[in-house]
Amino acid sequence: MPTVKMTVNGKAVSADVEARTLLVHLLRDKLALTGTHVGCDTAQCGACTVHVNGKAVKSCNVLAVQLDGAQVTTIEGLATGDTMHPMQEAFRNNHGLQCGFCTPGMVMSAIDLVQGKPPLSESEIRAGLEGNICRCTGYHNIVKSVKAGAEAMQAGKGR
């Protein structure tokens, strides 16, 4: 079985996996990081979104063995101690969720979308989140959350 080494949420990890193991299964089943969700399992819904080398990708659509040596950040890696990431805080403050299943993917995508950019308009946020689907259709508050999270990140309260 191939061995994969990567950095997950700042910690070096090493695991023996079958070649066919998807990143999301390594995260959930081997590393017990179950915040990353499997939604559609067909690479459409974005619930499994994590950051690989700082960029949002769907962890159900990449093999763990393809990412040997990569830096991976999951929803569990965003907070600093007890302080949530400003985007997480914004989702909480704006009730940017209904059932919450899509939320980890939404937050990871949102951070990738707004990071280092000038403020985005509502329509730019909506278009930018096209890779994430909320089955509750709770987009209104999600968009509000992303706007607020982006402002908080810009204000230097976050990263």
């Binding site: 990708v57 769907k58 659509n61 890779g131």
Partner: peptide, 9 residues
């Protein structure tokens, strides 16, 4: 092409 996550891979 596709969506943001797809464009990264």
């Amino acid at each position: 092409i596709g969506d943001r996550q797809v464009r990264h891979r």
